[in-house]
């Protein structure tokens, strides 16, 4: 341990913080988009319209079958061309960040879709039966009766997935985006303090994720009572 040199750490903090902001940006965007699009996918999957069911199932299966690293690389390859062709985002935008955001948003939607589907299916069937009998449409029954109960029950799972997602954002390393972890290793490579920087970033992730999952556990206990 005495071989470690922590003197460079205070200097590194501003860079690490801006890296952390990138990490948080991707995390928040992926959670919001993932839950919204995931709910939509789950609703499609449980609907009675066959083509929609197939689409949702295919989307989820494809994204869940391949490593996140590969998905990130794919989007890093595809996005620049899509940007020019479709999205018309100004050329000054950071392609890496946009690629990562799109990749994470879609990837997480697939994972959230499965959690939400299970949550919806756990709501007793009589609930939707009663709602429909009261004259509600499928959408009304979903929005007013099923989803509120489902989301309450699966909140701990959704949060746990958010913690996993927060950790997974570190994989943007493979497309060279300077998130928290990549910033750490960049500084480590530059100053010859790779060991210290890797240890420090591991500690930061550990504290954040450990504290958050502890809170989720508390929430779970409260909900179970």
């Amino acid at each position: 341990m005495e071989r470690l040199d922590w003197s460079g750490l205070p200097h590194a903090l501003p860079t690490l913080w801006s890296g952390m902001l990138i990490t948080l940006q991707i995390t928040v965007l992926a959670i919001v988009f993932g839950v919204v699009f995931g709910t939509l996918l789950a609703a499609l999957r449980l609907s009675a319209v066959k083509p929609l069911v197939y689409f949702a199932r295919m989307f989820v299966t494809i994204f869940r079958s391949f490593p996140l690293v590969l998905v990130l690389l794919w989007f890093f390859l595809l996005i620049p061309q899509l940007l020019q062709a479709v999205l018309r985002i100004p050329p000054t935008t950071d392609i890496r960040l946009v690629s990562a955001m799109v990749a994470f948003a879609l990837f997480e939607a697939a994972y959230y879709a499965e959690i939400i589907r299970a949550g919806i299916q756990a709501v007793p069937r009589t609930q939707s039966g009663a709602a429909l009998a009261l004259g509600m449409t499928y959408l009304q029954a979903m929005r007013l009766v099923i989803l509120p109960q489902a989301f309450r029950a699966m909140l701990p799972l959704l949060l746990t997935q958010a913690i996993v997602l927060f950790q997974d954002t570190s994989l943007v390393y493979v497309i060279g985006l300077a998130d928290f972890f990549r910033s750490s290793t960049n500084i480590g490579d530059r100053d010859g303090t790779a060991v210290e920087m890797v240890l420090f970033s591991g500690l930061v992730y550990f504290v954040i994720c450990g504290a958050t999952s502890g809170m989720v556990k508390l929430l779970q206990k409260k909900g179970a009572r």
Binding site: Q167, Y205, C209
Partner: peptide, 10 residues
């Protein structure tokens, strides 16, 4: 609670 990539580097 530590990302896999960080564990690899550790």
């Amino acid at each position: 609670n530590i990302p896999l990539i960080v564990q690899f580097f550790i």
